[in-house]
Design a protein around this nucleic acid. Structure first.
Lengths: 335, 335
DNA sequence: ATCCCTTCATGAATCGATTCAAAACCGTCG
DNA sequence: CGACGGTTTTGAATCGATTCATGAAGGGAT
């Protein structure tokens, strides 16, 4: 090994390792000239602290992991961006893990994070089967906050958005625009956000007596939306409006419809969910249900550090935000 | 601490710690019933390996870090997706660091990664001042591969796309569509990709005698594109075509122009760079210069593991891909 | 019964930083 | 000169997993 350790620095500076450690961690407790001698040795040798050793001693790492469903979805990157400043200013290091909406990938990440003894966790669980693993981490004293998801009866902090309400907003909006045959596109159904948004939509459809056709997809991405509309177009009685579980799906649907010559919104309206930046810039500016993305992240980080700070005697908090409708051309009455 | 260590497991199973370690790392070297006794104890106590201790002993972590300019840019998430499978199948753990096109953030990440003794690094450097830090890591035996960027005379592996050629492709295309007043939008100029794309564009403009107006932006994002066109519209002699340094900027520009009632492509054409999925789905489907995103990531990971495997006697390889033009409506002659 | 060989298990040494009780040092005052 | 108080420095113990030389146990063969 060519790696230089504290021992080498100590030797070069003619002091003990304890002193080198002090220079790094409590410089004020070291005499002026000793300190500069040590710093010189550090620079000279190009010494770099070994984080593994520090962590081993400390028993915890400084890492806060954010486990998201899809890093390529701007919704989640915005959530992460919202959380970062607070974490970093608290001396933490952010690491983002992408579960890809796959329980097995999620579990692999959680295993690794547990082995790494992370400081804490912000997680959007893939589905309900995630919870046993989450309880496990929590039982091993790893503080965590559920993101974009209520805690239900589980003993955790959480920040969520009322997805059922969001689903209602979308359906109400379509109903008010005169649509009576509605398609819902999204999946897998095991993802709570998908289920809730659909539930809200379904409530409204039943209350108002609208037809609802559900298209379940394998994922919440571009391709899924494009494929779903292909199926939809084969239907004898084609829906006149599509509610997509998120904006990526909606943009895919929009592209699919356009490719088949179906005019949006005249022949088929579309509404998405999340209101990512791309929604407003789409071929037909996309109506959507907006969630406070950055605020979700910021609040989650806040709750996490509250929990870390308060320790055992901590009372969990569950914050719920309300989504809002953003109406654009894709559901306009006429252009 | 409530954390259980190997010692606890050893005691519970009535064996030595060495044996527990063997069960975990070379199960075939342990007798059947001893092994199951140990595994039972592990399950019973809910024991979880301490990665810090492992790493300390091993001298390296299993983490491969990917340092990108902007995680919210689909270009980079696609590059990461391309690299992941290979890294994970080699037993590595991927961590993504976002420099946000900011040298200071980049440096902070590099410091931390060095302290963590990462296994290797895939990095898209922010600018040339990054290189001193990169040399430092490299000097400390951390293998790294430059991504989306040639190594120049630096002793590293790299995978890049010929950005000068890409810039030429874009400018040639606009020229062939009859444009003679061209705007370039992108920045900061210190980002090599931006500089190269501009250089290629400039070459063509000089060869063909086209007017070129350059708008430097502070970042390569949506907002930057929108703001740049605001300035452009104030010009007495407005350009008839815009070449944007990437698709995010182009989408922003498209939105800005549309908001001001400028018809694309009739009154102003736009061409972007990267050909992200959203480009094809834009308000006006965006012409762009396509790069092999996933392949960039895959190749980079491949080179990294080659270097790790070959050790000291490794010869660096520099792979360069060629970009290609994807013409869509945003530069169409007429609709 | 002896010797050899194979298969398993042991436990001490090691990685590098942190911590803290104890020691060293220095100036001052009685 | 010795005692004392305050400031610095020391060095051994510690965190938890891995490694490897050593040894024990079991099985055949002679």
């Amino acid at each position: 090994m060519t790696t230089t350790s504290m021992k080498d620095v100590a030797r070069a500076a003619g002091v003990s390792v304890g002193t080198v450690s002090n220079v790094l961690n409590r410089p004020e407790a070291v005499a002026e000239d000793t300190r500069s001698r040590v710093l010189a040795a550090i620079a000279e040798l190009g010494y770099v602290r070994n984080d593994s050793a520090r962590q081993l001693r400390a028993g915890r790492s400084r890492t806060v992991a954010v486990v998201v469903l899809d890093v390529a979805n701007p919704f989640f990157t915005d959530v992460v961006r919202g959380a970062e400043p607070l974490i970093e200013s608290a001396g933490g290091v952010v690491t983002v893990c992408d579960s890809g909406e796959d329980v097995r990938r999620e579990r692999r990440h959680l295993e690794i994070l547990e082995e790494q003894r992370v400081l804490g966790l912000l997680i959007t669980p893939v589905d309900d089967t995630s919870s046993s693993w989450i309880e496990r981490l929590s039982g091993h004293d790893i503080p965590l906050v559920l993101v974009d998801r209520g805690a239900g009866r589980h003993p955790h902090c959480s920040v969520a958005v009322d997805d059922v309400h969001g689903g209602r907003l979308a359906a109400d909006h379509l109903a008010e625009r005169g649509h009576t045959r509605i398609a819902f596109v999204g999946g897998p159904a095991s993802i709570p956000q998908v289920a809730d948004r659909l539930a809200g939509c379904r409530e409204v459809c039943e209350e108002r007596g609208l037809d609802l056709e559900v298209f379940h997809t394998a994922g919440l991405n571009f391709a899924a939306g494009r494929e779903a509309v292909e199926q939809m177009l084969d239907l004898p009685q084609r829906p006149t409006a599509v509610f997509c579980a998120n904006d990526l799906v909606a943009l895919g649907a929009l592209q699919g419809l356009t490719m088949h010559g179906v005019k949006v919104p005249h022949e088929c309206a579309i509404i998405g969910y999340d209101d990512i930046d791309f929604a407003a810039a789409a071929a037909v500016p996309l109506s959507s249900i907006r969630q406070p993305r950055a605020q979700l992240g910021r609040t989650a980080a806040q709750l996490l550090f509250d929990e870390i700070g308060e320790g055992r005697g901590h009372t969990h908090r569950n914050v719920v935000f309300q989504p809002e409708l953003v109406a654009r051309a894709s559901t306009a009455l006429d252009l």
